[in-house]
Design a protein around this nucleic acid. Structure first.
Length: 490
RNA sequence: GGCGCGUUCGUCUAGCGGCCCAGGACAUCGCCCUCUCAAGGCGGAGAUCGCGGGUUCGAAUCCCGCACGCGCUACCA
């Protein structure tokens, strides 16, 4: 039997990192066993449905590199993969349960349900449906009221009043649940849509899903699911409740914690490979030391028994570090050049002509790849290569060293312009030698001179190595910029 | 209120009876390197393994209580 897993999000908004981590585990598990990973859209709640969400879901999986084998966009042998298109299946299952006596129609109004619940809370008894429609007399009365008011009915599962159900979880082990604590839950809503409980079971069975991974907030409803499996004569799949991903304050990850959608990370310049790596290590680990791990290695080693039970706080700082590692050590140089170029095309001032010169980016990339953690930092590090329109103040130019000595700075810049003119071979080594000699003859500290020249040539106080930058800029531009700085001090 | 899940450095984690007076990583601190910023190297601090009982020659690891946190308790997933 081939392993089949599925990611079954409900399209209610932008895909969330916590959910995506579960999708990632689903994907890794399927690939590890050479099986399939399917995407299924659980749009059974019409009130929360958001049409753009499906596209976002697919795009976020695609970007992260979690490719699905079957789904609403790519089809597959068990189509359709959208629950709203499979309504007859759930209805048939509900009718079968009805016919078997494992379910019953409930005609109670939501208003009455609210009253019952309020009353139970007041009396401090466990809330739950009072089973009015479970017996014929109650049901008949409720049905009469409902028909007078033109309401429809829901289908509820007829939970055994006593006894126990065992539930075996691949991560948490076996738990026994007392049926007396469970009420008769709704499986089919009055609008004809199923609830999650019925829908996922019917679909997983139809789609031959062998492993169900979901957040551990689902543990409490697992016993209901066991009841449905049994009533429908379905052998339950392996079910694993994975730990949730929390925000820094220990609360469930939400908008309040800043970026929670992959798109925000993508826009800030996180690499999908890095996020994949990072996400794969929240709640799972290979051993006691592995941090940087490729997709292939994940697939080779991922198993459920190394998934932890406790929830994890999403540690953005570590993600940032990891992204830096990918930028400077993992991503191939040519790919990095393209990433940098795309970033510059997008973020550099519109006054700068497009497209950005890839050849130039290729020369700059080695200089900045080891100084940034996210792509968003790229433009600030190298915009001066692409424009001669530098903006810096006299204060920035003088810095601390020449703060009270503008004339000295001016003299040093003039000497620098001269030195640039005298450099025979335009290489960073020759430049550095020339400027060190100049500093000495000026009786200045090399660092002070370099800072001055740095601002003059780049317009910034923080840049890639000065002489490498100058080498790329070329003699003419460096000279012109030094003259510009001198003019600024005149 | 009921039911359930969880609990190892600030954070992510290793650990599945002796190798642990607990290892790695991020963050943090110090030193080195250094033209700025990074990167890198070295080193430090940081966990009474939630608490209390057992079991055992021996427990972070097994058992039982308790505490705390979280979740579920919808015609939401």
């Amino acid at each position: 039997m081939t392993v089949r897993t599925r990611y079954a999000p409900s399209p209610t908004g932008i895909p969330h990192l916590g959910n995506l981590r579960t999708a990632l585990f689903d994907y890794l598990l399927a690939r590890h066993f050479g099986g399939q990973f399917v995407l299924r859209i659980e749009d059974t709640d019409q009130t929360r449905y958001s049409p753009e969400a499906v596209g976002g879901l697919i795009e976020s999986l695609r970007w992260l590199g979690i490719e699905h084998d079957e789904g609403p966009d790519v089809g597959g042998p068990y189509a359709p993969y959208t629950q709203s298109e499979r309504l007859d299946l759930y209805r048939a299952a509900a009718e079968r349960l009805l016919a078997q006596g494992d379910a019953y129609e409930c005609w109670c109004s939501s208003q009455r349900l609210d009253e019952v619940r309020a009353d139970q809370q007041r009396r401090k008894v466990p809330p739950g449906y009072d089973r009015r429609c479970r017996d014929e007399a109650g049901q008949a009365a409720a049905r009469k009221e409902a028909e007078d008011e033109g309401r429809g009915c829901v289908v509820r599962f007829k939970t055994p009043l006593a006894g126990e159900v065992a539930f075996a979880d691949a991560i948490h082990g076996v738990t026994m649940f007392n049926l007396a604590t469970l009420d008769d839950f709704v499986m089919l809503k009055s609008d004809g849509f199923p609830t999650y409980h019925l829908a996922y079971i019917v679909d997983d069975e139809a789609m031959k899903i062998t492993h169900v991974l979901r957040g551990d907030e689902w543990i409490p409803s697992a016993p209901r699911h066991m009841l449905i499996y049994r009533a429908l004569g379905i052998e339950p799949p392996v079910i694993a409740h994975v730990p949730r991903v929390l925000g820094p304050d220990g609360a469930k990850l939400s908008k309040r914690h800043g970026a929670t959608s992959v798109f925000e990370y993508r826009d800030q310049g996180y690499l999908p490979e890095a996020l994949f790596n990072f996400l794969g290590l929240v709640g799972w680990s290979l051993d006691d030391k592995t941090e940087i791990i490729s997709k292939a290695q994940f697939i080779e080693h991922f198993t459920l028994d190394r998934v932890v039970k406790s929830p994890a706080v999403f540690n953005v700082e570590k993600l940032q570090w990891m992204n830096g590692v990918y930028i400077r050590e993992v991503v191939p140089a040519d790919q990095l050049v393209e990433l940098f170029a795309e970033r510059l095309d997008r973020d550099l001032s519109p006054s700068i002509p497009r497209p950005i010169d890839r050849g130039l980016v290729a020369r700059i990339a080695p200089l900045i790849r080891e100084r940034i953690k996210v792509l968003a930092e790229v433009p600030d590090y190298c915009d001066f290569f692409f424009t001669d329109d530098l903006h810096y103040s006299v204060e920035e130019l003088l810095g601390k060293a020449h703060k009270n000595d503008p004339s000295g700075a001016k003299a040093a810049l003039e000497a620098s312009a001269g030195a640039v003119g005298g450099v025979a071979t335009w290489t960073h080594d020759a430049l550095e030698a020339a400027f060190r000699a100049l500093a000495e003859s000026l009786g200045a500290k090399a660092g002070d001179l370099f800072s001055l020249v740095r601002v003059a040539v780049t317009g910034r106080r923080v840049t890639p190595p000065l002489f490498e930058s100058m080498e790329i800029l070329g003699k003419a531009r460096c000279e012109a910029r030094l003259r510009g700085a001198i003019a600024k001090l005149s």
